[in-house]
Design a protein around this nucleic acid. Structure first.
Length: 257
DNA sequence: ATGCCAACATACTGTTGA
């Protein structure tokens, strides 16, 4: 089973590229972030045409997440991160697919740092930790994937200096990420690339793609039950170089059945 | 110190992103 995550930066603007990627790489589950559309605008029929079912949690203009599943519908869909009734932002959706609990998230960016957006990011990460601890306690096979907006290590960024003041690599952001891992989750791409140098995002600006000025913020976290099944993980880097590309590349993990 | 680029909503400019 191949589970992928792709921050597509607008599902309407990206639809041809997205369908192309789905057809060419055929993930069992595709977790999408930044669909940037309300629920009514989600193009579900476009995915049905190529054999994917969908569950989505939309929002006007910003945020928005969706899960596409190959061949069968996502089960027991849950929308929104628990822990704050006031939080209206569409950044979290879960489902079950062939016995695996799949969590798809778009973690707050947190810039500028410091400030209320950074505070929101850290509070969101603590709520996420609570939900992930519940998943561990359930002992159900689980994966938590998405755009975490955290650069975990210095080896995950082209220039530590250039990004030093960014919310993505503040010590508080990293500490919160490592608290998640410390509870028992495995970062699939890091585990298979311990020397780093793997990027999932390249800015549209300043020729970042052409200069390979990227960093790794899209992550695939595996529970102990799914970590035992880890066969491979990677980045579909080539898609970042195509016409009308997202600024993120897709990431994926292959689990043995 | 700021814009660079891109998408979206609104309305021809502003907000957000990372």
């Amino acid at each position: 089973m191949k589970i992928a995550s792709f921050n597509i930066n607008g599902i309407k603007a990206r639809l041809p590229r997205l369908k192309e990627w789905l057809s060419e790489t055929r993930p069992s589950v595709a977790c999408l972030q930044e669909i940037k559309t309300q629920d009514e605008g989600f193009p579900a029929s476009e995915f049905e045409e190529i054999g994917y079912h969908a569950a989505w949690h939309g929002q006007k203009s910003f945020n928005g997440v969706a899960i596409l599943t190959d061949g069968e519908a996502p089960q027991d869909v849950s929308k929104g991160l628990p822990g704050d009734q006031e939080d209206e932002q569409a950044r979290f959706i879960e489902c079950t697919y062939r016995g695996v609990r799949v969590v798809n998230l778009y973690l707050p960016n947190g810039n500028p740092h410091p400030g209320p957006k950074f505070d929101y990011k850290l509070a969101w990460m603590e709520r996420l930790r609570a939900r992930m601890q519940e998943l561990l306690a359930s002992e159900q096979p689980a994966v938590v994937v998405g755009d975490f907006n955290v650069i975990p290590h210095d080896r995950d960024v082209w220039s530590v200096c250039a990004m030093a003041n960014d919310a993505l690599m503040q010590p508080e952001s990293r500490d919160a990420y490592f608290r998640l891992l410390g509870d028992g989750w495995t970062d699939a791409i890091d585990t298979l690339n311990p020397r780093g140098g793997v990027w999932t995002f390249w800015d549209y600006q300043a020729g970042a793609w052409q200069r390979d000025h990227g960093f790794r913020i899209d992550h695939l976290l595996l529970s102990p039950e799914t970590a035992d099944r880890l066969a491979a993980a990677g980045v579909d880097k080539e898609y970042r170089g195509r016409e009308k590309a997202s600024d993120h590349a897709p990431v994926w993990v292959e689990l043995r059945s």
